[in-house]
Design a protein around this nucleic acid. Sequence first.
DNA 1: CCGGATTTTCTGGTATACCATATATCTCCG
DNA 2: CGGAGATATATGGTATACCAGAAAATCCGG
Lengths: 252, 252
Amino acid sequence: MAEASPQPSPTLDVPRLDTGSTFAKEAYAALKRAICAMDIYDHPDEIRLDERRLSEGLGVSRTPIREAMTLLEQEGFVRTRPRRGIFVVRKSKREIVEMITVMAALESMAARLAAERASGADIAGLRRLMDDFPSGNEGARLDDYSDANIAFHQAILKMSGCALLAGMSENLFIHMRAIRKITIHQDNRAARSIVDHFRIIEALERRDAALAERLAREHTLGLARHVERHGDFLDAAAPLADVVPAEAGTHR
Amino acid sequence: MAEASPQPSPTLDVPRLDTGSTFAKEAYAALKRAICAMDIYDHPDEIRLDERRLSEGLGVSRTPIREAMTLLEQEGFVRTRPRRGIFVVRKSKREIVEMITVMAALESMAARLAAERASGADIAGLRRLMDDFPSGNEGARLDDYSDANIAFHQAILKMSGCALLAGMSENLFIHMRAIRKITIHQDNRAARSIVDHFRIIEALERRDAALAERLAREHTLGLARHVERHGDFLDAAAPLADVVPAEAGTHR
DNA sequence: CCGGATTTTCTGGTATACCATATATCTCCG
DNA sequence: CGGAGATATATGGTATACCAGAAAATCCGG
C-alpha cells in the first residue's frame, strides 16, 4: 500500500475488498454460527466464552469481539455478567414457550397475508416443499423433516411479503431449532405436523385468509402447549442459580 | 479505599454503586431518549451523530459510545455508513407499514391471551385508563390521548402475561410514536380509535378471546392501511439517495 | 486439619492511540 | 475560468494498555 501505483487501468477498482466486511461483523457471524451449531441443550453445564481467548483464536483484537458480543447479547444468545464471564444462554421452558407464542403471532399474521397476497407460484412451491413427506411416511427421515419443517415456516413468513415479519422471527427460529429437534421425536408430533402443514397449504390455495391464519396459529400454539407440558427438561440442569428468574429474552 | 476500615457495621454494603450501571448502558439510554425526544419526521434533513463529539459531551470515551451505537443500530434507530457518519434513521412509509403490521400480529395475540388469562382487575384498570376519553370528547386533548393510546396498547401487551410479546413491541412503539402523533389528527382517527378501544375492552370483559383478537388486529391493521394511503409524506424529504431502497428495519 | 482473612489472578469495562479510506479542499495546468 | 489530480481532513474500525472488582488460590492462626 506504500506505493500508490498510479496504474492508468481505468476500471480496476478492487472488488470491494473492504466494504461490507468488518472484523466485528465476521466475528458476529462466526460466533452466531458456532452457537447455533452446538446443541445447547445437550451440554450439561453453562458454556462460557472468553473474550481474550476468542480474540486470540480469531486473530483479531478484543474490540470487534466485544462488538459482536454486544449484538449477541441483545439478541438473547449470550449473557454477560460483569467480572464473571460471558455465557451462552440456555432458555428456560417459560422463555421457550413465550418465544413459540410470539412465533405463533407472527406466523398467523404471515399466513393471513400470504393467503391474500402470495403468488400462486409461491404457494405451489410451498406444496412441493412438503410433498417429500407424505402423510404416512414418518418414522424415517425425521431429522430431514426437522429442517423441512423450519423451511416451511420460514417460507410462509417470507410469502407474507413483509420482510420485518420474517426478520423478527429469524432469531426465534434459531433458539427453537434445538427444541424442535427434540420435540419432533416425541408423541407423534412429526405426523401431526405434516397434517397441519397440508391443511395450511390448502387454506392458502383457497385464499382463505381467516382459515390460514387460524390454522397457523393453532399449529404453533400446539407446539407451545406441548413444550409447556413436556418441556421440563429445559429447566432441569440449570447450574446458574442467579437471580433473573423469569426475565424475558431476545430483547434488552 | 486505602484503609479497609473494618467497621463492624453489619449491613452497610454500598448501595450498588457499580453494579447494573455502565457507561455503555447509560450512553445507550441517553441516546435512545434523545432520539425519541426529537420528532424525527419534522427535521428536514438526516441527523448525524458524531462519536467523538458525543463522547466529549457525555464525558466518556468513544468505546461505550460505540457500544451504544451498535445496539441502536441493531434496533434500527441509527444507521452507520463507514467513513461517512452515523445517522438517525428515518423509516420509509413501507417500513412503517411493516412495523404496524407486526404490531398488529403481536397485539392480536396479546389480546387473545389477555382475554384468556388477564385478571379482572387488570381489565378494569384498562377500562379506567380509557374512561378519561369518552367517545365524544375528541377535539381537545388530542396530544394527551396520543399518550393514552399508546398506554392502552402497551397495557394489553402486558396483560397477555407474555413478557416477550411486550418486549418485542417496545421498539416498534418508539418508531410509531411519532407517526401516531401525526395520524391522530387526520381523518377522524382519534374518535374511531376510542370506539375501537372500547370494543376491545368489552370483548376482554366478556372473555371472548377470538373477538378480542380480531378487534385488536383490525384496529391496528386499520392504522396500517391509513398510513399506506396517507403516509406518503414519510418518503417525501429523503435526502439520502443511497442504495438500500426497501431494506427491512429493527433487525440486522 | 480446618476456617476465615489475604493475596493473586482472571475478566469485563474503559480510555486512548493509530489506521485506512471517503470526502473535502486546494493546486495547478489547460 | 474550470476540471483533473494531489493533498488535507475527518470518521469509523481496530489494536492495545490499563483499571476495578469478583472469584479462586493461598496463607495463617487456632
